[in-house]
Nucleic acid binder design. Structure first.
Length: 573
RNA sequence: CGGGAUGUAGCGCAGCCAGGUAGCGCGCUGCGUUCGGGACGCAGAAGCCGGGAGUUCGAAUCUCCCCAUCCCGACCA
């Protein structure tokens, strides 16, 4: 491709609305353009990357016996009503009506679609196991699209679903996908950290996310460098310190605390550490109030709470609800004198001694609060968030935290959809049985952004050759028609030899062309200029290295072949 | 949805406080000179200043109401 004819609008300045490097570089290098918030146009150069990213997925999925489908993106409400998710999905699902008033959704995911399809395509235990997949657009009405392509309202996802006879089969399918995922990310040159994850609204049991360590990641990971425990903060567990209580139990007493509401206020007022306070927070879980109680030095983990409650929706209760439930203004809730509301205690609450908590009365707190004596712990669960420095749940060593970009997620779904949608096959005995499902996703354009995030320098992108839009960037420095013709000859020869070449044939200064080449970042740059016209020497340079080598025209093709081979080998799965 | 910020030429910005001719850099068009790390000169094209109301002789500038975008929190690949 000749740049003079290519729609490749590179920019010298960062776009004003981009904050993360990958977003800035993808726009500056002419890969994408913003159409509107959360929606992006892929320009020809970006398209080439996207296709390469997709094709690596296809190769590895096919290698793992995956079968490619293409599902409709417009899915009928009936499908969603069968699984129950028409009602539970919430506002992130785009819903539309056709001219007859029938409901449809722009699919945010395809469990239902695939389960429905398999239901009519498979009928016997002999048909299993199968893993099916597609690379297709998903629509999610994100509360907040962010960071360009990293989180958008419309995005491309590879989603795969496995159907097995039993848990053992599911585990095999899951492990096969796990391996495929490792291969895929390896081939992009992405360093990923697999972590234990929460299953979110998809439902299911085992779950692992593939994270790209990055400061711009939206996920927080907790990692134990000792035993290798790694988990998303949403799910991470931690070991509670053993109770150290030499202190005698104090009596329960009511204390006047005018205008003292937050934990910060309280630690100042009582001159006591945050850990002795019992924070009581009222939530609405599927429309019903629930109070959660945790020590004041911890953050509540809403994912854990939501999972424990098996709630579809969980949000902080409004002030009105809090006042109704506790019969006191917000800030004075507590578990002493039992309220008529379901209350869940974090597992570390029982070890608090002589604690302080709200008295469910305006401007009053209780001090000297002791679990079991002053309130019953009827429901106990791990509902607090693990933080850096907490002890590893497995080995007890201190954990560190890292930020990560979630590029892939695999998990064991179980029977959720095959049961709710009545997908059965006949077993050996002619009896109907539900297959067990697994579900596996990769965010395709997010992965592209993650690659840029991990492979760039201050001049621009440094593409791994496996996903580079072109393998070779040919910079022609020519002053006369005669010289242009000589570069053209080389360009034609490279094309004939089967290389992917982007040829900068513009009438621009050399510096301008080199800067553009660095910005868009093809792995191999060759320059045909003065030294070629004089000594038949062509300069060859790797984008990721600084040294330049010179080859004669006759050796060029062989040299490039071997360089490409070496570069590819760096990303072998 | 809550909190903060910003909307002026294709892109990046100034002008607004102190109302009166819409400006700079990049990019774009033409001509000429240059030509190995973002060249230069000359001549051009391009903006109902996010939208709507109002105040005023007069509004990019002041007031009010919308809308959009971005950042921080809850959703997720």
């Amino acid at each position: 491709m000749k740049i003079s004819r290519y729609i490749l609008p590179t920019l010298k300045e960062d776009p004003s609305d981009a904050v993360v490097v990958s977003h800035k570089l993808m726009i500056r290098a002419g890969l994408i353009r913003k159409e509107s918030a959360g929606m992006y146009i892929y320009l020809p150069l970006g398209m080439r990357v996207l296709k390469k990213v997709e094709n690596i997925i296809r190769e590895e999925m096919d290698q793992a016996q995956g079968q490619e489908f293409l599902m409709p993106e417009l899915t009928s409400a009936d499908l969603w009503k069968e699984s129950g998710r028409w009602d539970t999905m919430g506002p992130e699902m785009f819903r539309i009506k056709d001219r007859n008033g029938s409901d449809y959704s722009l699919a945010p995911t395809h469990e239902e679609a695939f389960t429905g399809a398999m239901r009519s395509l498979l009928s016997s235990y002999r048909d299993l196991p199968v893993t099916v997949y597609q690379v297709n657009t998903k629509f999610r009405d994100e509360i907040r699209p962010r960071f360009g392509i990293m989180r958008s309202k419309e995005f491309i996802m590879k989603d795969a679903y496995s159907f097995d006879l039993d848990e053992k089969g599911l585990d095999e399918s899951y492990q096969a996908m796990r391996k495929a995922y490792r291969n895929i990310f390896r081939r992009y040159g992405l360093e990923t950290i697999p972590v234990e994850a929460d299953t979110g609204s998809m439902g299911g049991s085992d779950s692992e996310e593939f994270m790209v360590a990055s400061e711009v990641g939206e996920e927080i990971l907790l990692i134990c460098e000792e035993c290798g425990y790694r988990a998303n903060q949403e799910k991470a567990e931690y070991r509670r310190p053993a109770p150290v209580d030499a202190k005698p139990l104090e009596d329960l007493r009511l204390v006047d605390t005018p205008d003292v509401k937050t934990i910060d206020d309280l630690t100042g007022f009582f001159r006591a550490p945050a850990a002795v306070f019992l924070k009581s927070i009222v939530y609405m879980a599927d429309g019903k109030p629930v109070m959660a109680v945790i020590p004041g030095d911890r953050e509540i983990n809403e994912h854990k709470l939501k999972n424990y409650l098996s709630a579809g929706e969980l949000e902080l209760a409004t002030d009105n609800v809090v006042e109704e439930v506790t019969s006191a203004p917000v800030g004075f809730a507590g578990p002493v004198n039992k309220l008529n509301v379901r209350t869940v205690f974090d597992i570390s609450v029982k070890d608090v001694r002589n604690g302080i908590t709200g008295a469910n009365e305006n401007d009053k707190h209780y001090a000297g609060v002791n679990p079991r004596r002053d309130f019953m712990i009827e429901e106990e669960a791990d509902i607090s968030t693990a933080e850096e420095g907490d002890s590893c749940i497995r080995c007890g060593r201190s954990m560190i935290s890292r930020k990560g970009i979630e590029v892939g997620h695999i998990f064991k779904l179980g029977y959720k959809y095959t049961k709710s949608m009545e997908f059965t096959i006949l077993d050996q005995n002619g009896k109907a049985m539900h297959p067990i499902m697994g579900c596996y996703g990769i965010g395709v354009n997010r992965t592209m952004a993650a690659v840029v995030e991990q492979h760039h320098d201050d001049k621009g992108i440094v593409w791994p050759i496996t996903v580079a839009p072109f393998q070779i960037h040919l910079v022609g420095i020519a002053k006369s028609d005669e010289e242009f013709a000589q570069v053209e000859e080389i360009y034609q020869e490279l094309l004939k030899s089967g290389f992917e070449v982007l040829y900068d044939d513009r009438k621009a200064s050399p510096g301008f062309k080199f800067a553009d080449a660095d910005l868009i970042g093809m792995p191999i740059r060759i320059t045909v200029g003065k030294s070629y016209y004089q000594n038949q020497e062509i300069e060859v340079k790797l984008r990721r290295m600084s040294d330049i080598s010179k080859v004669e025209r006759s050796g060029l093709v062989a040299c490039l072949r071997s360089m490409i081979k070496d570069e590819m080998a760096r990303f072998d799965a």
